[in-house]
Simulated scan of single mutants.
Amino acid sequence: MNVKVITIGNIKENFIKDGINEFKKRIKPYANLEEIELKETLITDENTSNIEKSLDDEADKILSKINNRDYVIVLDINGKQYDSVDFSKKLEELKIDGYNDFAYVIGSSYGLSKKIKNRADLKLSFSKFTFPHQLMRLILFEQIYRWIKISKNEPYHK
């Protein structure tokens, strides 16, 4: 299985970097993992048209990292919610259907362009709560590891 995590912006906090690195290390025996950090487009004037242009610029960067064979899962507060077991089952069904390449996308603090949402095979919501993007990346890596452990029927140490 190939897993790609595409994000806008970088991680500033060391404790979050440490947590992400721990889960990347745990995932490595089970999947080819690639983390792609893309530079956030600077917005100097926060009017709607500038934000949309910025999101479109970021979308172009994201789309350049997505292959045709990737099953694209975007994190979107309005997306479908699953519990960990059900989402692990969903991924196993997708693998049975022939998908082996998964690309998870986390947008900037302004979200994601419609271009990316339209390309998504699945819009996934972890919660109706808003999380900081750095923390969301850590949560995503933890969940990827959890989904793998569930699918392998292996214990997950809580």
Rank of each mutant, 00 (worst) to 15 (best):
N2I: 12
K4M: 09
K4R: 11
V5N: 02
V5S: 03
I6W: 04
T7M: 14
T7C: 15
K12R: 11
N14R: 12
D18L: 05
D18F: 09
I20K: 14
N21V: 03
N21A: 04
K24F: 13
K24R: 11
R26I: 03
K28G: 10
P29H: 00
Y30W: 02
A31T: 01
E34P: 06
E35N: 11
I36T: 12
I36S: 13
E37P: 13
K39P: 14
K39Q: 14
E40K: 08
E40L: 04
T41D: 14
I43P: 10
D45Y: 09
D45Q: 12
N47S: 10
T48I: 13
S49F: 05
S49R: 14
S49I: 13
E52A: 05
D56G: 04
D56E: 10
D57K: 13
A59W: 09
I66T: 14
N68S: 13
R69V: 08
R69K: 07
D70C: 04
Y71W: 02
I73E: 10
V74F: 01
V74L: 05
L75N: 02
D76V: 00
I77P: 11
I77G: 12
N78Q: 10
G79L: 05
G79I: 02
K80I: 05
K80S: 09
Y82G: 09
Y82H: 12
D83H: 06
V85A: 12
D86Q: 15
D86T: 11
F87M: 07
F87H: 08
K89R: 08
K90R: 11
K90I: 08
E93T: 00
E93R: 01
E93F: 00
K95H: 00
D97V: 00
G98Y: 00
G98C: 01
Y99A: 01
N100Y: 01
D101V: 01
F102S: 07
A103S: 10
A103P: 09
S108R: 09
S108T: 06
S108Y: 10
S109M: 10
Y110A: 13
G111S: 02
L112Y: 04
L112R: 01
L112Q: 06
S113E: 05
S113G: 09
K114A: 04
K114C: 07
I116P: 05
K117W: 08
K117F: 03
N118G: 12
R119V: 06
R119W: 01
L122A: 03
L122G: 14
K123I: 04
L124T: 11
L124C: 13
F126N: 10
S127K: 03
F129I: 15
F131K: 08
F131S: 07
P132C: 12
P132S: 10
P132W: 06
P132D: 06
P132N: 11
H133A: 14
H133Q: 06
H133W: 13
Q134D: 13
L135S: 14
L135K: 07
L135A: 04
M136C: 11
M136W: 12
L138T: 12
L138V: 15
E142V: 08
I144Q: 04
I144K: 08
Y145M: 00
Y145G: 01
Y145R: 00
Y145K: 02
R146L: 04
W147E: 02
I148P: 01
I150D: 09
S151I: 05
E154N: 03
E154C: 01
P155D: 06
Y156Q: 02
H157L: 06
